[in-house]
């Protein structure tokens, strides 16, 4: 059945959060490295388009993007602790003993010492690493970024040494985060042969059954054990997404769910 092929991965709210995160992140990467490598071809290209105020614009845009990122992050914290779905999400993202076992087995499987591929739940160790890396990075970048932004205020508390440290951390963390996103996240979303050319979940919100079997067999198992209402709910949510993307609360009480 076609409708049964769709498994909700990211709710509309989550996709909006993800979209704000990714867009502000990309803007931050571009405007950040533009400061550090002012003579590189792409910075010159941008400067050629924007003109003589490029540098100031860069700074302003970087700060706007950082505000967006921080706001999204704060909302995300709220989301994790004050919404039903968020609470579940947080629970599912917490690392546990099983992740270590999974990782060990996965490595054995990848290097060919084992033929069985470990089975993952809703979030594999790969995704958990990704998530917590983003949390860590946002936290570090946020703190050091604020220090550097309000240097006049912070100078007297952290001294110039503190400024130098903040600046060093901000720079290296930026490299680490960008590389992690490119190498880790982009691989699994784009290059990964299972999803190539792209896992569209961040746009459409759902995974196919095939993807579920490959990536999250345990989750599939649990969900199949659950009553069909759950599936229906997922489906109805998907249907709602196509018409209205913003209000999850509304979709949850959508009368269509009962009909189906």
């Amino acid at each position: 059945m076609k409708t049964e092929d769709k498994y909700l991965r990211m709710s509309a709210n989550e996709r909006v959060q993800h979209f704000l995160l990714l867009s502000s992140f990309i803007v931050l990467v571009i405007t950040g490295f533009a400061l550090k490598f002012p003579e590189s071809f792409w910075v010159k290209g941008i400067a050629a388009v924007i003109g003589q105020n490029t540098f100031e614009a860069r700074g302003i845009v970087h700060r706007i993007a950082s505000v967006v990122l921080v706001m999204v992050s704060l909302y995300h914290v709220y989301y994790l602790f004050f919404t039903v779905r968020g609470k579940q999400l947080f629970k599912d993202f917490l690392p546990n003993r099983q992740d270590v076992t999974d990782f060990m087995n996965s490595m054995k499987y990848l290097i060919g010492k084992s033929d069985t591929k470990p089975l993952f739940g809703r979030f594999s160790y790969i995704e958990k690493m990704e998530y917590w890396a983003v949390v860590w990075g946002t936290f570090i970048m946020g703190i050091t970024g604020v220090i550097l932004w309000f240097e006049n205020f912070f100078l007297k508390y952290v001294t110039n040494t503190g400024m130098d440290i903040s600046s060093a951390i901000h720079y290296y963390e930026a490299i680490l985060a960008s590389l992690a996103i490119v190498v880790w996240h982009f691989y699994f979303i784009f290059l990964n042969p299972d999803v190539y050319p792209m896992n569209k979940a961040w746009l459409k919100g759902y995974l196919t059954r095939e993807q579920m079997e490959h990536e999250h067999p345990l989750e599939l198992e649990t969900s199949e054990k659950q009553n069909t209402d759950n599936i229906k709910e997922n489906l109805s949510e998907k249907a709602k997404d196509e018409t209205e993307t913003k209000n999850i609360a509304v979709s949850e009480t959508d009368p269509d769910i009962n009909k189906q």
């Binding site: 240097e151 006049n152 912070f154 100078l155 007297k156 001294t159 110039n160 040494t161 130098d164």
Partner: peptide, 14 residues
């Protein structure tokens, strides 16, 4: 330029 610098202790080289 940096008003806040007035009270700063410079703890390392520039």
């Amino acid at each position: 330029c940096h008003e806040g610098a007035a009270e700063v202790l410079f703890t390392s080289k520039i």
